[in-house]
Computed example of a mutant assay.
Amino acid sequence: MAVVSTVEEQHKAIDRAYLRPARLLPNRRSAGHGGEALADAFELLLAVVIAEKPKKELALTIGMAMYEGDPAVVKAVLAHTPLPIRLLVPVIGRRRYASYVSMGRPGRRAWAP
């Protein structure tokens, strides 16, 4: 049960870090300002996600975010990354998540990118 409580705490930390960019993004889109605060919020979210996941699972995490998350948020996060990362991360992340889901994990449905 220790694993379950650890995972629950990780999810809570990520949820808390996600709330700020989720609140700031609509204002950025409509008013065109607040970019610095939004960038800071995304940096915090990324730091929390990275801290909560082993590095070998980052591609899986990114793929999961791309599958489950809002495409506009994923695009906004990637917009602030260097070009090679912007080009490679979506491909690697999708493939890694598709591979993970198709492994027949209990309670998971198959997904093809």
Rank of each mutant, 00 (worst) to 15 (best):
A2K: 07
V3G: 05
V4F: 13
V4K: 12
T6P: 03
V7A: 07
E9S: 13
Q10N: 14
Q10P: 03
K12Y: 05
A13M: 13
A13C: 11
I14N: 02
D15P: 00
D15M: 02
R16E: 10
R16N: 05
R20S: 10
R20A: 09
R20D: 12
A22L: 04
R23V: 03
R23T: 04
L24R: 09
L25D: 11
R29N: 06
R29L: 09
G32A: 03
G32N: 03
H33D: 14
H33K: 12
G34T: 11
G34P: 11
G34A: 08
G34L: 10
E36L: 09
E36F: 10
L38R: 06
L38V: 04
F42K: 00
L45Q: 05
L45R: 01
A47G: 11
A47C: 06
V48I: 07
I50Q: 04
A51D: 13
E52D: 13
K55V: 10
K56G: 15
E57D: 15
L58S: 00
L58V: 02
L58R: 01
L60C: 09
T61N: 12
I62W: 05
G63A: 07
M64F: 06
M64Q: 11
M64V: 02
M64H: 06
A65C: 12
A65R: 00
A65G: 13
Y67Q: 14
A72L: 12
V73S: 12
V73I: 15
V74C: 11
V74E: 05
A76G: 01
V77T: 06
V77R: 00
H80T: 03
H80I: 00
T81E: 13
L83P: 04
P84W: 08
P84I: 07
I85W: 06
L87I: 15
P90C: 03
P90N: 04
R94I: 11
R94M: 15
R95H: 10
R96I: 00
R96H: 00
R96C: 02
R96T: 09
A98P: 03
A98Y: 03
A98N: 08
V101G: 01
V101Q: 12
S102F: 00
G104D: 10
R105Y: 12
P106A: 10
G107R: 09
G107P: 12
R109L: 11
A110Q: 08
W111L: 14
A112N: 11
P113D: 12
